[in-house]
Design a protein around this nucleic acid. Sequence first.
RNA 1: GGGCGAUUAGCUCAGUUGGUUAGAGCGCCACGUUGACAUCGUGGAGGUCACAGAUUCGAGUUCUGUAUCGCCCA
Length: 1035
Amino acid sequence: MSEIPTRFEHAEEADKIAQAWTDAKCSHADPESSKPPFSVVIPPPNVTGALHLGHGLNNTLQDIVVRRKRMQGFETLWMPGTDHAGIATQAVVERRLKEQENKTRHDLGREALVDRIWQWKDQYEERIIGQLKRMGTSCDWERLRFTLDPICAAAVRATFFDLFGKRRIYRGKRLVNWDTFLQTAVSDDEVFNQTKKGHFYHFRYPVIDPKPGEPEFVTIATTRPETMLGDTAVAVHPDPAAALDAVEAGLREKLSDANEKEAADLNKQIEALQKRREERLPELIQLRDMAADGRKLMLPLVDREIDLVADEWAKPEMGSGCVKITPAHDPNDYEVGIRQDLPMINILNSDGTLNGEGGPFAGLTIPKARKAVVAALEELGLMGDIEDREIELPHSDRSKTPIEPYLADQWFVAMDELAQSAMDAVSDERVQIFPARYRKGYLDWLSEKRDWPVSRQLWWGHRIPIWSVGGLSQEQANELSSDLEKLAERHPDQIAQRIDSDGVDTAGETTKAIFVCIRSEDETVEADVEALGLQQDPDVLDTWFSSALWPHSTLGWPAQTPELAKFYPTATLITSRDILTLWVARMVLMGLNNVGEVPFSEVFIHPKILDGLGETMSKSKGNGVDPIDVIDKFGPDALRFGLARLATETQDVRMPVQYECPSCEKLIDQTKKNRALPSMDCPACGKPFSTQWAETEEDKSLPKAAVVSERFETARNFVNKLWNASRFVMMNLDGFEPTSLDVASLPIEDRWLLSRLSTVTQTVGDAIERYQFGEAARVLYDFAWDEFCSFYVEIAKPRLSDDSQRQIAQNVIAHGLDQLLRLLHPIMPFVTESVWNHLGQFAPKRGVPEPTEVGPFVMTASFPVADESHHDSQIERQFSEFQQIVAAIRQIRASQNIAPKETLPAAIRCSASSQELLQPMTAYFEALAGAEVQSLGPETTAFETDAHLALPDVDVDVHVDLEKFIDVEAELARLEKLQGQLTGQITGKQNKLSNESFVSRAPADIVQKERESLAGLQTQLEAVAQDILKLQSKK
RNA sequence: GGGCGAUUAGCUCAGUUGGUUAGAGCGCCACGUUGACAUCGUGGAGGUCACAGAUUCGAGUUCUGUAUCGCCCA
């Protein structure tokens, strides 16, 4: 036994254990199994970078669920994989290319760039999988998928083909968020707003042929003057008077329930509004009439006639009351353009420079064009005031450069019916979301039913499977279409085509375009289509398109595989809240569309992990914690337990982050300042270390500090506690003989343990079932430490060295440990497996009441089921009495500062029934409290030099003989403190009970309880007062 | 502007349907180490439950409002 070390050496053990699991194929799922299925798909981590603690939490929680279900006898599949993360990964690789080689993707070309990204992917996938494996996640590693691999690609093609055929995919010109740096559209979700200093420019457009009395100019204002080159109208409100009325009414309503400060402000606004009405309204009405009369304006600099239109987008209360309309470069103007049927003029090239429509400004970048346009307008005398103003500017999350609204051809998925299907699935609870409050966000987002733009002008991703040719006459189109029909007959179910209008040719005729979608990645079919003059769309699909298919694509869909039949739909999806809409909602609708069933029945949204300053963790801030660093320092089980106990209902957890000095292992709190430093000196040992920001050779040569959190210390200590308790148990299993036991005749401490096990098993099971991982972890921690170790094991010590009791005690304690290992295994797989292995050598057959053979792995052992027959609340109450007496004796000892090795005589007054139960336990007072019980029962009296503590709740008085130890001052201090506490409580209760309405209105049992409790306190107080008198006489 | 959430001990967090004196871990103080464990044990100090109202015999818990912080959407 001496070979079992006093610590669990995770660094040496974890790999061996993981290897043993792999060799035994413990986590491999068999679709042919007759066991009921339980499956989970991993939220595929981005190959953009390595995992941090957020992923650590996500995957720990999944593994807890998965391991438990596996132990419960389900054929369990946890499908692992990674996500190609289109724009994010390409952006990272492009940025590196720029930094390290000063090249753009265009210097490299499509194929070479994609090659580089694949290299990146291979590197990070390996890293990510390595991180997951070290955390102990029990994925089925034989089934690793990647969203860009051939299996997933086939699913993407099949889905696109299907939606194209159903006309749920269409092509349209839409205003998109254009990233001029990456030269791609980015989704709304990839845009963030930043407030910057800018200007608000006022300028004038001349009216063409104004009638007498009509204004010669219209004044408009904008923060982006260069967009005037793309203006196609100026709008004025169709009913400016009513619009002003409405605004005023709104202000007055606010005024009616405003406080004084707000009222003053509101009154000012109303005043200003009335002034504006006097000054501006007549002209706005006049302009409205001019618009109705078809008056036009001359757009300066490019000399283009543009319309004056009446549209509600113009706000009479703002600016001049008139607004310029640039439909191709502003989302609101785009809406106006659609309503008013205005031309849409794109003035930008894809790189953000002005195109030919910019006339004299063509080729300039936006900032340069802005200056030039302003100067030119000034020269023409058309420029008015220029105000300073803070401007909310959209930026691309990927390149951190400003977004330009840009009109581009895009493929869209029509969302009306698909979104509805995903809403219905949640509304009728085929998919349940936990915590339930997230339902609202999910439903609100889907209810907008905004069509989903899926084109991305990128090179990394699933190429859009559309081939097209445009500029055709109707006849040409018909001819080509029939050629394609013939081709389609040769390749059944592989080709779908559609004719759309394309544009207008020089003669003013509408031209046609033909779009062909090819179902499978088949070079012959593609070559045949290309031979007809069609070309493949250069764009790729939004990365979420392939992730939306994840639960069925990973199982082989569209092929009808055994895996799909056995494991779809999956059971539960555990993820973070920020992708509830982008990912979860889309998986639901795609699952319904493709397979006809929801992809999972439950979704659990877990908290986010923030750093000590309340900020989300990320590499770019320097506060990201790598799970590997935590594992190196504290072990995988500590990482997992530490994370699991954080996963409470309340969202988001702060986790203060520290640098670990590589020289002296001191933990140094991270601050905003030091987390940005490339290197620093350890405040403890003074030696320098580097951080992730190290750039210079000098910094890089220093040892690097890991970024960890001491929050895992508690968990590490718990692992060690379990290890050592197990070690003790096994040290005492020599000569173990499996024995059938009659539970009813076992001593109270054994029945107490069995009863507690029954309760804890039930609570833990329920908690995990309800995704209350924090609760499960806490209950197990408290049970293992405070009950199993602190009481059961301590009590077992004398029994294990007593031959007459040894065998029973061995059987029960082995069973207790066995059950604890099983319960803890899903959270702490390594240490439990290691102990299980050792335990098996001493007690290969174990269990209460009937020992049975156990298997080689706790991972594949059965998860405990609460044994109701073992639960005994009477026993638990009585044992609690014992615990309280122990605590009372310890308290007296501590207050008297009595050395642990000294044994104290004690006398315990209790009821006759308690006496019966406590009599056999008297030896344990010695073991747990160093007390020798000299008398026990109703007739017990105090000692001559007595210290007394009453336990009114259980009707017990504890007396300790202080003859040899008495420290009168200390005892007096203890008693006086107690007296103070009691007096306070008594006053409180007397007040409560003298309150007439409490006595008459509160339920009788509550009042009765208060009365009894007061009486108990008063008796106690009297006793204390007497003890004090007695002691004072001895002074 | 709309929605969601948070605010409890120095720090990080629990607190089930309203009912004794609001809990844990870390940190702090005191004492303790020849045996399972100092990654430990025993005891202790430490809280106006953000603020203001309301409901109630009784509010950390229910309702309304305010403040501060965070996230999502526009």
